[in-house]
Amino acid sequence: MLFYIFKRVLMTIPVMIVVALFVFMMLRLSPGDPAAVIAGDYATAEDVERIREQLGLSEPIVVQFTKWLGQLVQGDLGTSIFSNKPVAELIVQRIEPTMLLALSTIVFAVLVAVPLGTLAAYRAGSWVDRFVMLFSVGGFSVPVFVLGYVLIYILSLKLKWLPVQGYRSPFTEGIGPFFAHITLPTLTLSVIFIALIARMTRASVIEVLEEDYVRTARAKGQSEFKVLMRHALRNAAVPIITVIGIGIALLIGGVVVTESVYNIPGLGRLVLDAVLARDYPIIQGLILFFSFIYIVLNLLIDLSYSLLDPRIRY
């Protein structure tokens, strides 16, 4: 088991190197002088030179990459060109709202989607099923930000139930205001997740319900509810968890948009501000950071399979 974990951790290294290489090459392969691209349209020759020095762009490309990789391993994600602060520090400053929004979204989505998907699978073909499928296809079709504005328009502007925008920290500004402000973004961002997870739950429960051991459970005289809970759902867990893992990439993209709609000062806003300011080290650092999170979470999910399914033993 320990050996497997070790091996599995080792296996993420080539993936991380691929990510790093990709991010690295992106800047170098883009048309024009990267330093000039980053410096922007109004930069002086000195600005461009300064950036070239800062990014080490004048050295041979292999040297650049190994140096940069060495910095990454030490947790150095580079330095912002405009604020001159380390990117890692900026990430730490902005991470709280993003993490809490992502967390509340996943929790809410799972709580809604898994029962919904299971019910749809059990009553496959019924109106419940059709409703769930319709909701899910709709959830995949409405862009996150449009949904955000619709919700703001109805719940905040018309009904005045919830604040329009902004963020309150639960640690410094209290739980109440936090929930008041996080509810709408969570609802907005959850829709696509509920669609995704409900769909996968439905599909895998339907598949499991056709398995022989479900028939065995029925042959024992087990009630339908217990057949669902004890036999179907537990066996359907692996694909459901997997899709949650894959959905994290989707979630990260969604967070950027949602933070923009609701004016939440998180990592998403950091990216967008960096895009406007052409602060490339921040963009680069955030891509690496998010990819790292994605890889680590999916590694954990992979390792959790052995808890869910005894056949997967290492």
């Binding site: 398995e211 065995t216 537990r234």
Partner: peptide, 14 residues
């Protein structure tokens, strides 16, 4: 009842 496929007739995770 006992079934044809002993491989699949039992719940794999219990």
């Amino acid at each position: 009842m006992i079934f044809q496929e002993p491989m699949t007739a039992l719940n794999p995770v219990a």
